[in-house]
C-alpha cells in the first residue's frame, strides 16, 4: 500500500513536470506529436527507473560507506549520461524514424533535470531500494502522462487561430500553467 502511494504521489500529486516544474525542456521540445511524445515519455521512464536503481546502489554501497556523499552530483550525472548513451544506441538500432523524431532531445535526456532531481529526491526522502524503484517508475509515468496530454492538446491547437506571438513555446507554457492549476486540485491528496 505504501508503495502504491509512492507511485501515485510521484505520478500525479507531485508530478515532476506539472508540480515540480522539472524536465520542462523535452516537455516543450518533443510535445508536438502524440506518438513521439509518448516514446519520449517511455525513454525517460526507462532512464528514470534504471537511474533510481543504479544511483541508489552507488550512493548506499559506495559513497556513504566511504564518506564520499559530496560526490553524489558528479557520480549521478555520470550514471545518467552513460544510461542515456545506452538508450540512444538502442533506439537508433530498433527505430530510425523514432530516433530522428526525438532528435537532439534524446541525448539531452542527460541534462533533463527531472532525472537528476529524481536521484537526489530518492536520497533526500531516504527511500529504501524498492521504494526508490517505485518512485522512479511513478515519476516516469507522470512525465509520460504530462507530455502525452500536452502533445494531444498541441495537435488540437495546430488547427487553432492562436495569435502569432503565442504560437509554439509560449502557448505550450501557458497550457502547462493551466494544467498545473488543474493538478493543484490533487494537493494534499497523499501526504509525504
Amino acid at each position: 500500500m505504501e508503495l502504491v502511494l509512492i507511485f501515485f504521489s510521484a505520478a500525479i500529486v507531485n508530478n515532476f513536470v506539472l508540480s515540480y516544474f522539472l524536465g520542462i525542456c523535452p516537455f516543450i521540445g518533443v510535445s508536438g506529436k502524440i506518438s513521439s511524445a509518448f516514446s519520449m515519455g517511455l525513454a525517460t521512464t526507462f532512464v528514470m527507473s534504471i537511474t533510481s536503481i543504479v544511483t541508489w546502489l552507488i550512493y548506499h554501497l559506495v559513497l556513504v560507506p566511504n564518506n564520499l556523499d559530496f560526490l553524489q552530483y558528479v557520480s549521478f550525472i555520470l550514471v545518467i549520461a552513460s544510461l542515456v548513451q545506452f538508450v540512444e544506441m538502442f533506439i537508433k538500432k530498433i527505430s530510425q524514424p523514432l530516433y530522428r523524431a526525438l532528435g537532439i532531445f534524446l541525448p539531452l535526456i542527460t541534462t533533463n533535470c527531472a532525472i537528476l532531481g529524481l536521484a537526489l529526491f530518492i536520497v533526500l526522502k531516504e527511500y529504501s531500494f524498492i521504494e526508490g524503484i517505485v518512485y522512479g517508475l511513478g515519476a516516469g509515468a507522470g512525465f509520460t502522462l504530462a507530455i502525452t496530454l500536452m502533445a494531444g492538446i498541441r495537435e488540437e491547437l495546430d488547427l487553432a487561430d492562436v495569435p502569432k506571438s503565442f504560437q509554439g513555446a509560449p502557448i505550450t507554457l501557458l497550457v502547462a500553467g493551466i494544467l498545473a492549476l488543474a493538478f493543484m486540485g490533487f494537493a494534499g491528496l497523499i501526504s509525504g
Binding site: I153, L181, M184, G185, F186, A187, L189, I190
Partner: peptide, 27 residues
C-alpha cells in the same frame, strides 16, 4: 479529491483535469 484530498471540493479541478484528456479521448 473529495474523500482523500486536502481540499473539500474538487469539481473545478476534476473538470479541468478531464478537459486536458479530451484531445486524447477524441483521437
Amino acid at each position: 479529491i473529495r474523500l482523500f484530498g486536502g481540499l473539500p471540493e474538487g469539481v473545478m479541478y476534476a473538470i479541468l483535469f478531464m478537459n486536458s484528456f479530451v484531445p486524447l479521448i477524441n483521437r
